[in-house]
């Protein structure tokens, strides 16, 4: 994977330019340009509307923060060859807990938010304990907590209560701009930087990859596998709680169905970003590109006049996101297949 900076022969450049993340970047740029030209129009009142407006770009950013955060949470998890299906449900549970602490508990917003983060981390800790102490497969454990967390959220609210009427100072986080960007984008970028440094610049990150490739090997090499795994799941819980608070601020409401299905979008973004679902490899910038590619596709489609006339933005985006994922995965194994093909044809005659 690594390219030594001193060595500048053309082969290495080619390797960099055809890396998965770079390919994804080309796709993203192509998507963006396509929607910019095809999805921007002038409306009846003479205003430029559609994809090519700054408002739309900010909307894309705002709408992708929560799924983006969950994808960031999942990247280290998947690198360790694990999975966390519970984070979408945890987002819902945290949103409800946050609303309850503030509304029924009478706590100030900041204290309620702080407590919610702690509770999110604890919920992640529950996953971590079951996975590391009992050595249960992450898929099964988080499938259980997926239902458990959502069930708790529904039980607390009886499926009916919705917390609303949050103060404007709190809604600022989800609905206004700060220093030119949507406020929550700063939080998102902050978390991205944090997770990026953790995965790429610390020994923890190296441990995650080692565990993902060979957990037994890592154990024999003296790595504290249990503690490293616990860290990624607790971190996932914490980030899900952050996403819950941003979600609540964006919509101005906390309801038990918050974040339903988000875990699948997040997993799609991570895998699209080049992280192997079998663990061992993956990058945070790849995940960010994956999130962006999906968000631009989804938002861009809704701007296309053809799609608008069919009233099928939702269906089309689901369909094309799936297609994009399959194409990306195919493209990433294509060079390998091509080289095998070439090797066979250029093999010297016996």
């Amino acid at each position: 994977m690594s390219v030594s900076p001193g060595n500048k022969n053309p082969r290495d450049w080619k390797a960099i330019l055809t890396r998965h993340e770079m390919l994804l970047l080309y796709v993203l740029i192509a998507e963006w340009l396509f929607f910019y030209f095809a999805g921007t129009t002038i409306n009846r009142r003479g205003a430029v509307v559609g994809f090519g407006t700054l408002d739309r770009q900010f909307d894309i950013l705002r709408h992708s923060c929560e799924i983006g955060l969950l994808a960031l949470a999942l990247t280290p998890v998947i690198i360790t060859a694990g999975i966390d299906l519970s984070i979408g449900s945890l987002l819902g549970l945290c949103a409800i807990l946050f609303g309850k602490l503030w509304h029924d508990g009478g706590l100030p917003i900041s204290v309620a938010a702080g407590l919610t983060l702690v509770l999110g981390a604890l919920a992640g800790g529950l996953n971590a304990t079951l996975i590391t102490a009992l050595r249960l497969p992450p898929l099964i454990v988080t499938l259980g907590t997926y239902s458990l967390f959502r069930g708790l959220a529904e039980a607390i609210t009886h499926g009916a209560i919705t917390y609303t009427d949050f103060p404007a100072s709190f809604l600022f986080v989800g609905q206004e701009r700060w220093l030119g960007l949507p406020t929550q984008a700063w939080i998102f970028f902050g978390v991205a930087l944090g997770v990026g440094l953790l995965v790429h610049r610390t020994t923890f990150g190296r441990a995650f990859r080692t565990i993902g490739l060979a957990p037994e090997g890592a154990r024999y090499a003296g790595l504290p596998v249990g503690r490293r795994l616990a860290l990624v799941y607790v971190l996932a819980g914490l980030i899900a709680a952050i996403a819950a608070i941003i979600y609540t601020a964006r919509l101005g409401q906390a309801k038990a169905d918050a974040g339903t299905g988000y875990e699948l979008f997040a997993i799609t973004a991570v895998v699209l970003g080049g992280t192997s679902i079998f663990g061992g490899t993956g990058t945070v910038h790849g995940t960010l590109l994956g999130v962006a590619a999906i968000a631009v596709l989804k938002n861009g489609l809704a701007c296309l006049p053809v799609v608008m006339r069919m009233n099928a933005a939702e269906e089309m985006s689901g369909l094309l996101t799936g297609a994009l994922l399959l194409v990306a995965l195919t493209a990433s194994v294509l060079p390998k297949i091509l080289s095998r093909f070439r090797a066979r044809h250029h093999a010297p005659a016996p």
Partner: peptide, 18 residues
């Protein structure tokens, strides 16, 4: 889905519907 409703409205805002 209440959250989806909000996203659809925001989408229509930038599409400049009447």
């Amino acid at each position: 889905n209440a959250a989806k409703q909000n996203e659809i409205v925001e989408n229509w805002i930038t599409l400049g519907v009447d």
